[in-house]
Amino acid sequence: MLNPTIPTEFRHLCRVGQLDRPTPGLAPGYVQANLVVLPYDLAFEFLLFCLRNPKPCPILDVTDVGDPEPKLIALGADIRTDLPRYCIFRHGQLIEETTDICEFWRDDLVAFLIGCSFSFETAMLNAGLSVRHIEESKNVPMYKTSIDCLANRTFSSPLVVSMRPLTPQDAIRAVEVTSRFAKAHGSPIHIGNPEQLGITDLSCPDYGDAVTIREGEVPVFWACGVTTQTAIARAKPEFAITHAPGHMFISDWRDEMLAS
């Protein structure tokens, strides 16, 4: 299995069609990002939604209109080709998944790169904490919750969360480790009983893969950038592109650049 260790290698493999898999554990130590691409006439409304909901939607970069290069976090990259997998939406409906969006690109599009919890997983591993989906070579499990984000006139969404099981003691340590990474969703939003978030079955995530929860462990939940995809489904824009859940963009920034 291809396992690139630096961002330029990762993006090259995506660009030539040789890498199509979830990105947990790839290019460890480098910032990963969610992708949302919208027409310019919706860009301000989406920006406002993100600013009102910084926990699930921390903005790392925004491209110029019609320009696929994220100049702030990955100079020379091309968001049309440099992710492993994309989702294409029309009027809020997922119509296609693809590994290249060049044919869909338009001169009126704006791309948003949004922080991802994969960016604090190296710090968790370095602290001796378990990251179960990496251990099991899976995508992280993600769930829609009963918590509503702050809406504006165009975008609204339930909060989506990612989950990592930990012992209670390790959960406390995970709060300490991840709280430094506000631009990667920061500290957990909930520890323990998933029903308090409106989640009834951890074995059936809405996105990603179920992982093993061992005896003595509790589920730990972080805000997740896939929240933006549920916002798109509700808003039903004429056209939108996102990353496929778990198939992130890997930037040139080191994780430490997001740590406070």
Rank of each mutant, 00 (worst) to 15 (best):
I73V: 15
I189W: 01
R52T: 05
L26F: 12
E136V: 07
E195T: 13
I241M: 04
M248F: 11
W105I: 14
F44H: 11
T200Q: 13
L72A: 11
Y207R: 13
R80T: 14
S156W: 03
T228K: 14
C149H: 01
S179Q: 15
F44V: 12
L109G: 05
F112S: 07
P245D: 06
F46K: 09
D61N: 10
D100M: 00
A235F: 03
V220T: 05
A233L: 04
V31K: 07
V65C: 13
Q32S: 12
M142E: 10
R21S: 13
L83T: 05
L42V: 09
I199A: 10
T230A: 12
D209E: 10
A184G: 09
N34F: 04
I232W: 00
L258T: 05
A223C: 08
P205C: 09
L258Y: 04
A174V: 02
V16T: 15
F89Y: 15
F181H: 12
N193F: 10
D148W: 13
T227C: 02
G92R: 10
V16H: 03
P4I: 03
S187C: 11
H133I: 02
L26Y: 13
L48E: 15
C14I: 03
A33N: 00
M248S: 08
A244S: 10
C50G: 00
A182M: 10
L60E: 07
R21G: 00
L42S: 01
D108M: 07
V220M: 08
P188A: 03
D148N: 14
V131K: 00
P7W: 07
R90H: 11
E195V: 10
A182V: 11
I172A: 11
N3V: 14
E238M: 07
T81I: 15
R153K: 15
G25C: 00
P194W: 01
R254H: 15
R173W: 02
P158M: 03
A235S: 13
L202T: 10
P70A: 07
S251V: 08
P54E: 01
